[in-house]
Nucleic acid binder design. Structure first.
Lengths: 153, 153
DNA sequence: TATTGTTATACTCTATAACTATA
DNA sequence: TATAGTTATAGAGTATAACAATA
């Protein structure tokens, strides 16, 4: 009983409310930052994974971020239409599409990376650098509830 | 610019990703906790505000949590059908519905409060109590970008 | 004329099922 | 038989527009 958090009856102090609105605020800033570059948040996420692990199949790409295969189709369609990625059949397994960045796609990704980083900085502006770093570390801990085994498999 | 965060090309270290998945995890736990009580998250949010400020009109209720008036109609419909709240015309302004908790609704809210608090505790389990408190404080700061005027600091 | 609650409608986002072509 | 990609479809969730009752 003494532990029930929204103690003053303030629903806006519930963790769910706080997290939801923090995310909404970050999203608004990230969208605004990426919009001039002609890509959206989801596409930026795909490019981030791709830049690190290129080339990847559509489904490998999706499973790394949590985008399902049917959604990925449209994302790759859009990125391909914008000449940011190429979709070519994998010679080793022709069911697969090898997704790779184009040269201009690499440039777009670099610019988008800076724009997104700036959006994060604006979002974190109320915090000191130390608080920001601690906040990110805490979120990592909450997203990895099993610190048991450890190490990149 | 050396500040670009997903330094290792790890998209899962972007703040957006971390926040989104943390929220998703909390939502899953809150849903599971509330489900046996027959109410969902949105209804619980409404009850929390209602318990503190009863009685309220539908639109007043909605504006306090950020639920729009058309969505509120269905929420109140559901809560009324479950005999958790009553909807009676406000004598002072008959356009308004005065929403109030029933007696059993108050009981449901108490139980739901405990269940939700327990869900938050499970979600925060990877953190120490001090870290949890700091995390909540940080989220509050991020949600109040204008600490300019008043308020108990 | 403006506002509360309401309905109907549209739009976004995502997930499910079924199909194709490869393996 | 199983898997990668694709398409069509359905389901949440939410927002927009118009309307009736009331102010």
């Amino acid at each position: 009983m003494s532990n029930v958090r929204p103690s003053s009856g303030d629903a806006t102090d519930a963790l769910g409310y706080l997290l939801k609105h923090a995310l909404r605020s970050l999203i608004a800033q990230a969208d605004a930052a990426l919009e001039p570059l002609g890509i959206d948040r989801k596409e930026f996420g795909v490019l981030t994974v791709l830049a690190a692990h290129e080339p990847l199949s559509q489904q490998a790409l999706g499973s790394l971020i949590g985008i399902d295969p049917t959604t990925m189709v449209a994302v790759i369609d859009a990125l391909e239409a914008k000449r940011i990625v190429t979709r070519t059949p994998d010679p080793a397994d022709r069911r697969r599409n090898a997704i790779a960045l184009t040269e201009s796609g690499r440039g777009t990704f670099r610019d988008a990376g800076s724009a997104y980083a700036e959006a994060e900085r604006e979002f974190l502006a109320p915090l000191s650098d130390a608080e920001s770093e601690r906040f990110r570390r805490t979120l990592r801990a909450l997203n990895r509830p099993e610190p048991s085994a450890a190490g990149p498999s």
